[in-house]
Computed example of a mutant assay.
Amino acid sequence: MQAIQSILTPIDFSDNAGKIVKAAAYVAGTFKAELHLVFVVQSFEDYSGFFVPPISLPNMEEELFASAEQQMESYIEENKTLFADAGVSSVTGKVLTGDVAEEILTFAAKKKVELIIMGTHGYKGLERIMFGSVADKVVKTACCPVMTINPYREECEGNVT
């Protein structure tokens, strides 16, 4: 296995993202690896067979993208102390548009990341049934190891028997 110099962590800005980012920062700091945070704006083309939008899709997607970029900048700024305390020297944020799993995989391949750290849960309810689990798709097709974290599970204390 090659050295881990670059880690990708998809985030969704939810409360659970903090748990995932904290774990990713710890691993990145341990390996002295750069950390890439990625948010993917789901393309509305995926929903085109289910509804007729009341507004112009291109304008809405552009607004969502711009908002997500601002949110990414703020998120990285708000977590500077976390990254510094974990020993992470390089954190970048990127907002992408398209199918969430495909964009994560494409970014990972393009940046030649050695590890993806992501949450096991994102989509819920009908969206999960329609589009499947992003984590499942990434785990099954990634070109590098994937560490998944269940953000709903409490941390274990002591040894588990």
Rank of each mutant, 00 (worst) to 15 (best):
I11P: 05
L8Q: 14
P58N: 01
A68I: 03
L37E: 00
M118A: 10
G119W: 11
K111H: 13
V100C: 02
M60Q: 12
E127S: 13
S89A: 11
G93F: 04
L82S: 06
G49S: 11
K110Q: 14
E78Y: 04
E34C: 09
Q71S: 09
L64Q: 13
T106K: 15
V40P: 05
E63L: 15
G49D: 11
T81H: 14
I116G: 01
V41L: 14
A66W: 04
P10V: 02
M72H: 08
N59H: 11
V38I: 13
E34D: 13
N16F: 13
E77G: 07
K94A: 12
V95N: 06
S89E: 14
A68P: 12
V41I: 11
E34P: 12
A25N: 03
I55Y: 05
V41H: 07
G87M: 10
L37W: 03
P54N: 02
N59F: 11
L96P: 01
S14A: 09
K110E: 09
Q70K: 15
A24V: 03
P54Q: 06
S90L: 11
I76M: 07
D99L: 09
L8R: 01
L57R: 03
I76K: 05
K110R: 06
G93L: 00
P54V: 04
Y123M: 09
E78M: 07
A108G: 08
F50S: 08
L82Y: 01
G49P: 01
Q70S: 15
L64A: 04
G87K: 05
F39W: 07
T120H: 10
K112H: 07
E62Y: 04
F13K: 15
V40W: 08
A68W: 10
E102H: 14
P53H: 02
L57F: 00
E61S: 06
A33Q: 01
V88I: 14
L126S: 09
P58V: 06
E77V: 05
G93A: 00
P10S: 09
F13E: 02
L126I: 13
Y123G: 09
A24G: 09
F13H: 10
A24K: 01
V27K: 10
G29C: 03
E78P: 00
P10I: 03
F107W: 06
M118D: 12
M60H: 10
H121D: 02
L37K: 00
L64G: 04
I55N: 09
L115D: 00
K80C: 14
E63W: 11
T106W: 10
F44M: 15
L37G: 07
